[in-house]
Design a binder for these strands. Structure first.
Length: 681
DNA sequence: TCTATTTTATG
DNA sequence: ATAAAATAG
């Protein structure tokens, strides 16, 4: 063992000193060098958005000051290759081991595996730990030892595991610092000048950093938690935990959340407080969804870019940049949707219910490709999280076995009265509707002219008419579905005739490019009620390139509407928003020509394909995973070696529903079978 | 108390 | 959409 040696503790999305198994192991073993490597280029398309980078910056500063008070500091490095940077850190500090906590997104799985291989080959001990989940994904299986494919079954199993989640660890009392005299920190740049103004507002609403996360947790547990079951779906009040960004960056451990919340539950159960007990169940269910997102990502590493069920493979998604823009700007004509999109832009945060509303509207009413929406969330959310967002969008889109029905359209008007019965939420974020009576606030298009006039609203002018009618959307959805079956039938026939061999991979070979519009829109036309004829594409879309999101972020900062609205999701109604001020998010990029190419997506695909041939055994990982905290020797950790994606959409077969996965979920094909019968029959 | 009707929840 | 739960009669 490395008694007395120096350990590198590699911080990533575990920016805390409390309940941090990697840090604890390092402290136990001797001296510690804490390192953070900023290598955003490694994230490919998923270069973090402006607000997310703002959070990271604050959180790292917070961690550094905590580490300093304990006797060391955080070494920060800029890199385009984390693994080789780690190797340099090891060499320059004379460290003998590398410690880190697990991540489950596909890029981290590959990168961390590589880190283990390369450093181990250099004679470095590499150990990794579970710090992000109640249970490691490979520990949660059904009676046949297979991974679950629905959330309910998964979560039921988690809650009845034969062993409890690990109890949280206390922070170290003191850290002996390794020798970093030859390993200088580099000052990391997370925001440019143009971003600082917008970011300044964020600090009013949010306090990143692990001890603030801890405080937020306590506040929630002692406050809103007990009434969570009653209040959790109110779009407008501070009744949720507001922990999501803290959890994303690992500032607070889910195990600690789980334990503290469970203690409350026992307490309330003893008092006979049924509502309180139920509140805890509902709250930990949302923790469970976060767990499940990692579980899915681990078992099916394509979750963030490909539908898990292939039954919508031939759905003709609308490739309509006008719709997309109207949605982003909150000018769809549906107040609840628009309020949500304005809040997202201004505050970087949305209530879970509102995320569902705007995403559902995006996919079902506008019929835009879900990955565009997911990418926009990625760019704008403070708690942007690849696994959670992929789960959310796939759930909404209907590509999970336990998704919503695909052909069910939710009406934002009715949802408005459900989640925002008094219209307060709409009035806060859509000041142009502030004077409209509650009776009409969620459907202004029905309001009598006199009411509109009294409220100072001119539909189509200072607030849009609905961009698409719900009935029209239903008709369009029907048409799109029948088109989908024709395409599917044609594809089937072609394959049977042998005309098209080994194709059916169209989602990879011809993705729908991300719209250039988001980069260089410069026409300030108001959104028309009758949009131009909509393009349809059969392929699933491709995620925008890292470059595009980066550029867009820069110029978004010039947007004047941001400065005028409040940065606080819980703030008062912004009085100073100029109604006529159109968001000008993309003004600077008018000359920019997008250079998105498919090859990034493909090379990432190939990396993952290669991974399936890696030698490590899953069994080995699972057997030892539970003893990691005891300092047991940790085997090289890697995803399952068997073809872990074949259960879902076949790489080559798409709708070819012979996979065991679909056999286990026959209802997933319900729409298709029923419709095809009514069509061809 | 039982049944019809309305509301709510749905990962 | 649909089923379960709450409420009205």
């Amino acid at each position: 063992m490395s008694g007395g040696g120096c350990s590198i503790v590699w911080f990533r999305r575990d920016l805390r000193v409390e309940d941090n198994p990697a840090l604890a192991a390092g402290v136990r073993a001797g001296a510690v060098v804490a390192v953070f490597v900023w290598a955003p280029e490694e994230e490919g398309h998923y270069y973090p958005g402006r607000v997310s980078r703002w959070w990271l910056k604050q959180s790292l500063a917070h961690l550094d000051s905590s580490l300093r008070s304990l006797g060391t500091s955080l070494v920060t490095k800029r890199s385009t290759d984390s693994v080789s940077t780690l190797l340099e850190v090891v060499k320059s500090t004379g460290a003998t081991q590398l410690l880190f906590n697990h991540l489950y997104d596909p890029l981290s799985l590959v990168r961390d595996h590589r880190a283990k291989e390369i450093l181990t080959a250099q004679g470095i001990t590499v150990r990794s730990f579970n710090a992000d989940l109640l249970y490691e994904p490979w520990d949660v299986n059904d009676a046949q030892g297979r991974p679950f494919t629905t959330f309910d079954t998964f979560w039921e199993r988690c809650l009845s595991m034969p062993f409890d989640p690990e109890a949280p660890l206390l922070p170290p009392k003191r850290i002996v610092s390794g020798d970093v005299s030859r390993c200088p920190s580099v000052t990391l740049v997370f925001e440019d000048e143009s971003e600082k103004g917008s970011n300044a507002l964020l600090a009013r609403a949010w306090s990143p950093g692990w001890s603030n996360a801890d405080r937020a947790l306590t506040t929630f547990i002692n406050g809103p938690l007990i009434e969570y079951s009653m209040n959790r779906r109110k779009a407008d009040s501070a009744t949720t935990s507001f922990l999501s960004p803290h959890l994303h960056f690992g500032e607070v451990s889910v195990r600690k959340v789980f334990h503290l919340v469970r203690i409350k539950q026992v307490l309330w159960a003893n008092e006979g407080n049924k509502a309180g007990e139920e509140s805890v169940n509902l709250f930990i269910k949302s923790i469970g969804l976060r767990e499940y997102s990692r579980y899915l990502s681990f078992n099916h590493p394509y979750t963030h870019e490909r539908p898990l069920l292939g039954h919508l493979k031939f759905f003709p998604w609308a490739v309509d940049e006008g719709y997309f823009k109207a949605w982003r700007q909150g000018r769809t004509g549906y107040p609840l949707v628009d309020a949500g999109m304005r809040e997202l832009w201004a505050a970087g945060w949305l209530h879970d219910r509102i995320r569902v509303v705007v995403a559902s509207f995006f996919v079902k009413v506008l019929q835009l490709p879900w990955r565009w929406g997911m990418k926009y969330f990625w760019d704008t959310l403070l708690d942007a999280d690849l696994e959670s967002d992929a789960l959310g969008w796939q759930y909404i889109t209907g590509t999970l076995p336990d998704s919503r029905e695909f052909d069910r359209i939710d009406n934002p008007q009715f949802e408005g009265y459900k989640f925002d019965p008094n219209g307060e939420y709409v009035r806060r974020w859509l000041p142009e509707l502030a004077r409209l009576p509650t009776e009409w606030i969620h459907h202004p298009w029905n309001a009598p002219e006199s009411v509109l006039q009294a409220a100072g609203i001119e539909l189509g002018s200072n607030y849009p008419l609905p961009i698409v009618g719900i009935d029209a959307a239903k008709v369009r959805l029907e048409e799109a579905l029948s088109e989908m079956w024709q395409q599917e039938a044609a594809s089937r026939a072609a394959i049977e005739n042998g005309t098209e061999e080994g194709l059916g991979d169209s989602s990879e070979s011809a993705p729908i490019a991300f719209p250039e519009d988001i980069l260089m829109e410069e026409n300030h036309e108001p959104v028309r009620n009758n949009p131009p004829a909509t393009n349809r594409r059969y392929e699933d879309q491709m995620v925008p390139s890292m470059t595009s999101s980066f550029l867009r972020i820069e110029d978004e900062e010039t947007s004047s509407d941001v400065r005028n609205s409040t940065g606080d999701g819980r703030a008062e109604v912004p009085r100073d928003v100029n109604v006529n001020q159109e968001p000008r998010r993309d003004a600077l990029n008018q000359g920019f020509v997008q250079t998105v190419r498919n090859n990034t997506a493909l090379s990432q695909f190939n990396i993952l394909r290669g991974l399936t041939n890696v030698e490590d055994s899953t069994a080995e990982s699972s057997s030892s995973s539970r003893r990691e905290r005891d300092g047991g020797i940790v085997p090289v950790w890697s995803p399952p070696t068997s073809s872990y994606s074949e259960q879902f959409v076949g790489d080559d077969s798409g709708i070819g529903a012979t996979s065991s996965y679909l056999q286990r979920h026959p209802q997933s094909h319900q729409i298709i079978n029923w419709r095809r019968l009514s069509q061809t029959g």
